[in-house]
Amino acid sequence: MENASNDKLTIAGVEFQSRLWVGTGKYKDFEQTKKAIEASGADMVTVAVRRVNIFDRKTPNLLDYIDPKVYKILPNTAGCYNVEDALRYARLGREAGISDFVKLEVIGDDKTLFPDVCGLLKATEILAKEGFIVLPYSTDDPIIAQRLVNAGAAAVMPLGAPIGSGLGIRNPYNIKIILETVKGVPIIVDAGVGTASDAAIAMELGCDAVLINTGIAGATQPIMMAAAMKHAVISGRFAYKAGRIARRLYAAASSPFDGML
């Protein structure tokens, strides 16, 4: 039987133990962040790049709780609305961290936080040439997904729904088309997952991983939701690999007719 140990996600030679990736934003405190991430089973953890608080050196540091020796740290370019800013944050993130991975965001609008795909494509091309392993946060558009891969993206991360919206996988058919047409890189649903079934749906479609932040951090009990998401991603992956039955309009009896009185 196929099991988790021979079904690992690999990107640019880096192997991941979990197909659930998690963000570190919006938690009550670092203690809760740490416990939720432990419960999620994730080994890829996103972070943002921001100014150090110079004048209050007693504030705790995220990395005191999320050990970079245990977790792979994925810096993002969240909050960047143009190519220049995204490049700047990506380069700073690489310098502050220990890897070439970047979750690339070029945001187009502060109400939807939808990606500016023109800027995203440009930034992907530049950063890939600089040796970054670029994981662009994209719309669920199969054409831009392929263009991102052509520009050097190491994975494509289409949104399920707007960031923090919890609306789930709003266009599973587009995700399916991306999965069928964009070959050679992992497809990772990023944003919109609101509860366990959303994560399972993404994985059942055949996505390679799911990235969740608000869906866990914003739950009433984040640590329990982290565990729920862990199981959902495993369930969804198993269901995808197992091959679901075809949908049919009418019933098909499970019990035999033979032997009936």
């Binding site: 963000g23 919006k26 670092f30 972070v47 790049v49 921001r50 150090v52 110079i54 540091n61 995220l62």
Partner: peptide, 10 residues
């Protein structure tokens, strides 16, 4: 001079 570090983010 800018000095940045990692903070919680998605």
């Amino acid at each position: 001079v800018e000095v940045v570090n990692f903070v919680g983010g998605g």
